[in-house]
């Protein structure tokens, strides 16, 4: 039996902080508070333990270790002191999947209407996986290219099902 196209697993819970602000005004302060550079449009910046993703022109998603959730939230809140902004701990709201293996791209290509070739290496794309909203970016190795995918927690079982279906052995996308 051939191998699955990629391994699918739920990543360990992590801290996720949602930040809404005028990034033009507050970007520098937020960069300092998070210790990460401001991501460009539809990109994600990471230092190995934390990541800062561009979600919309006035929204960022800060990802880090679970035990740092309060510290991260408070730092962002302080960075926005005096500004109109919104910082929320949304660590419980989403589930993160790791899709890893030499054919991980194939799994994503079956589910998301996204031209992966046109997506920069550090791109973060909010899109649709089959019937639910997700965000995807490249991360991890697993012997090839890997992906991270986040979705809302209520649909995590559904997302796991479609990811596993897309990864069944032998169902690669290369021409035959």
């Amino acid at each position: 039996m051939a191998e699955t196209l990629a391994t699918i697993r739920r990543a360990a819970p992590c801290a996720m902080i949602s930040i809404r602000a005028d990034l033009g005004r507050a970007g520098d302060a937020l960069a300092e508070a998070t210790g990460l550079a401001m991501p460009e449009q539809v990109r994600i910046v990471t230092d190995g333990s934390r990541a800062l993703g561009w979600m919309s022109p006035d929204e960022l998603l800060l990802i880090g270790p679970l035990d740092a959730r309060n510290e991260m939230r408070d730092a962002c809140d302080q960075a926005l002191a005096g500004e109109h902004g919104l910082v929320l701990d949304v660590s419980d709201m989403r589930v993160m999947f790791a899709i890893e293996g030499p054919r991980a791209d194939d799994v994503i290509r079956k589910l998301c209407p996204v031209d992966l070739d046109a997506m920069p290496q550090d791109g973060m794309r909010r899109t649709r996986a089959a019937q639910v909203g997700v965000a995807i970016w490249r991360e991890g190795d697993g012997g090839g290219r890997g992906w991270r995918l986040i979705c809302f927690r209520s649909v995590a079982d559904y997302v796991e099902t479609i990811l596993r279906n897309a990864a069944i052995p032998g169902a690669h996308l290369a021409p035959r």
Partner: peptide
């Protein structure tokens, strides 16, 4: 125009 993504209709 906000994120530069060429989105298909099902994303909109």
């Amino acid at each position: 125009p906000y994120c530069g993504v060429r989105a298909e209709e099902t994303e909109l």
